[in-house]
Amino acid sequence: MEAFKTHQGIVAPLDRANIDTDAIIPKQFLKRIERSGYGEFLFYDWRYTSEEQENPEFLLNQEPYRNASVLLTRENFGCGSSREHAPWAIEDFGFRVIIAPSFADIFYNNCFKNGILPLQLPAEEVEGLFSKTAENPGYKLTINLEQQRIMDSQGYEREFEVDEYRREMLLKGLDEISATIQFETQIADFERTHKIYYSR
């Protein structure tokens, strides 16, 4: 996994609450067995017409948002299924940060495993960022994970909170499995006394 230390990018304001994983990546693309290449299918039903043409009305089909890397959106982002294809599509499109007032549980967790920072900010703060984005086409934000600060070039700056363990994971691009395997002795010891009643 690519480490995440600091990131600067164009903010795409996707002004909609409750964006679910079916909207992020529809089911027909979950049949692929690869881990990459999902970016072109991101937000498929909104991004393309039923004739599979680009929908010019959709934000990510407009300049400068084709090159956006910070997604600004509303509450409960990522609700629905556990499909990791959702963060894979978001990352493959080029997003590294998602800012929202709240995230669905499984999606939030999946982001950290894929080098994406899901940044939860208070609703009024998110509202303010929507205004700034509307007033300044091509608005950029810098997100510094080491210092836990978010800022723009016009003097906006604030701290944000993120769980320390997950922050470390992103900063180091940590492989969680390697870390857990260090506890092999403890896992084996646990298994010796832990009772499981099904027999196969």
């Binding site: 299924s81 499984i106 967790n109 999946n110 969680e176 857990t180 896992i187």
Partner: peptide, 20 residues
């Protein structure tokens, strides 16, 4: 509970999960 594919791999490899 439901998990993502990275966690599926974690469970396959270790039969455990890191969870809060």
């Amino acid at each position: 509970f439901g998990i993502g594919t990275s966690e599926v791999e974690h469970v396959l490899a270790t039969q455990t999960l890191k969870q809060y």
